[in-house]
């Protein structure tokens, strides 16, 4: 049975200025993404993967075209509504900087959970469950600088998942990790996708990581190919 549509992108274009040049980072991208997908964006550097993730995550706005999230046109949303959607329905995993350096793994997860309305009960239990799910229960009191790259990425996964988001957007989540840690993070994301039905959209260069995806969208020069 086909899952409901999460995202609908129609003729999305995005440009940015590099020096005196206008760079077309997205060119008429049209696609649909369904709930529960484990979707990979593949392509060389500069192909538009990160820009597409940013547009999907409401971190950047397209120059033209439309992005509908669960049927709602994101371009018509106020800044406040966009903040609310990111806070309640989205989780993010970035390539390197993911965690607030002065907070422990526990506090990094806890802070974003406490920011949700009506989330004050069982906070400790839910944070520990999230950390336990990514294998970081013993590192809960450690700060990012005391953790390995893999542990930091897993803490970011815990932070993204603790609020039960509709979608997790991950930009090259394994790029700064060695093979073993990279595989571990991907397996973790896959497990969360299968167990909790969370939609994962991630970009990667790594062919082995791509193999784990249900669907791969290849990008080149800002277009899906």
């Amino acid at each position: 049975m086909t899952q409901p549509t999460l995202y609908t992108l129609t003729d999305v274009c995005h440009t940015y200025t590099a020096g005196r040049q206008q760079v077309h980072s997205l060119n008429n991208v049209t696609l649909e993404i369904h709930k529960g997908e484990f979707l990979a964006l593949a392509g060389p550097s500069g192909s538009g993967k990160t820009t597409l993730l940013n547009v999907l995550g409401l971190l950047d706005s397209p120059r033209s075209g439309s992005v509908h999230l669960q049927g709602v046109d994101t371009g018509a949303m106020s800044q406040r509504d966009q903040d609310h959607v990111r806070r309640t329905q989205m989780g993010f995993i970035f390539q390197t900087l993911n965690l607030i350096p002065v907070l422990t793994a526990f506090e990094n997860v806890e802070y974003f959970l406490l920011r949700l309305p009506g989330s004050r009960s069982n906070v400790r239990k839910r944070v520990m469950e999230a950390l336990d799910a990514v294998g970081l229960a013993d590192q809960a009191g450690q700060r990012p600088m005391e953790m390995s790259g893999g542990q930091r990425q897993r803490a970011a996964v815990a932070r993204a998942l603790v609020k039960d988001p509709a979608v997790v957007l991950a930009d090259e989540p394994t790029a700064s990790l060695d093979h073993q840690n990279g595989q571990s993070v991907i397996h973790l994301m896959k497990r969360m996708n299968q167990e909790r039905g969370v939609t994962f959209i991630f970009s990667t260069h790594d062919a082995k990581v791509l193999a784990a995806a249900d669907r791969v969208i290849h990008m080149e020069d800002g277009r899906t190919v």
Partner: peptide, 14 residues
């Protein structure tokens, strides 16, 4: 600034 980006990405308002 990067940290501010993380907070904003995760839904903290300006």
């Amino acid at each position: 600034t990067g940290e501010i980006g993380i907070l904003r990405a995760n839904g903290d308002s300006r």
